[in-house]
Nucleic acid binder design. Structure first.
Lengths: 140, 140
DNA sequence: CTCACTGCAAAGGTTTTGCAGTGGG
DNA sequence: CCCACTGCAAAACCTTTGCAGTGAG
């Protein structure tokens, strides 16, 4: 609880950003709302605790966080932005036509990929990060 | 030239869709505009040849094509839809902050992935398709 | 002929922007 | 104190929708 809060404030301050209650709330929302929240979900969650925080501020804050690599925008084919607070290498499971996106962690796969691309050169391109978008069906 | 046109008409007819000049133009645009065009680029290109084709129709047509798996929506963090006319398994190279998306074909990689996931089970998920989103920098 | 498809224009929803006011460092 | 940040509301943008008219099969 407290440790999380410390992490959040540190995360913001480390980037040289001003620490405001709005920013803490927004970042907390992304960590609390685990499954890659949309802007709408973040706004709703933040305003439940603090209705005074305006939508415009939340949009600006999210953009600031993305620029400072505190969070990342999730690629989506749904036409709405979604955000990901996880910086550790991971992959995404998606079902077509469903907004659900699950994280998939697989160290063995990561090692396989890192190993493969350390040997294989992509002409004209320098690889920084690899993410698998795995499409399929969630089984009940 | 002619062979392409035949492919285009076949592609539409094979799905039981009505063959209209609007649909031919839209599909041709996606094939001609190679680098994963946005809706805006498609509209511009189509209307250069045929200004009578309306925006609404193009949007509806694109959705129809996606539903019928003639093309696919490219996941994007740019907030705009982009489309991909290629059905063959391939991956995407992207530079952060740049709209450029290059295709990356790698049979060896595909085999590695197919092999890996034929052995590895993801609990609660049935894999249909895998696409790598490789982020990095285009070298000059 | 008929029903799927088109054109038009308006509506809908999300994101961005400008500017005056506020507060963190 | 100062400048980065916020709140508010309007604007900008992209996409969807409704409906009357059209044309492919």
């Amino acid at each position: 609880m407290d440790t999380l809060k410390i992490n959040i404030t540190e995360e913001i301050k480390n980037k040289g950003l001003k620490l405001t209650s709005q920013r803490i709330e927004v970042l907390k929302a992304i960590y609390d709302l685990e499954n890659h929240p949309s802007t709408e979900e973040i706004i709703k969650y933040v305003q439940e605790n603090n209705p005074a925080i305006s939508q415009g501020t939340i949009y600006k804050t999210l953009e600031t966080f993305v620029e400072n690599k505190i969070i990342s925008k999730v690629e989506t084919s749904g036409g709405v932005f979604r955000y990901d607070g996880i910086t550790k290498m991971h992959h995404h499971l998606q079902e077509e036509g469903s907004p659900r996106i699950d994280d998939y962690y697989d160290e063995e796969l990561n090692n396989l990929l890192i190993d493969y691309f350390s040997k294989k050169d992509i002409p004209g391109f320098e690889v920084h990060d690899i993410k698998l978008h795995i499409k399929g069906k969630f089984k009940k």
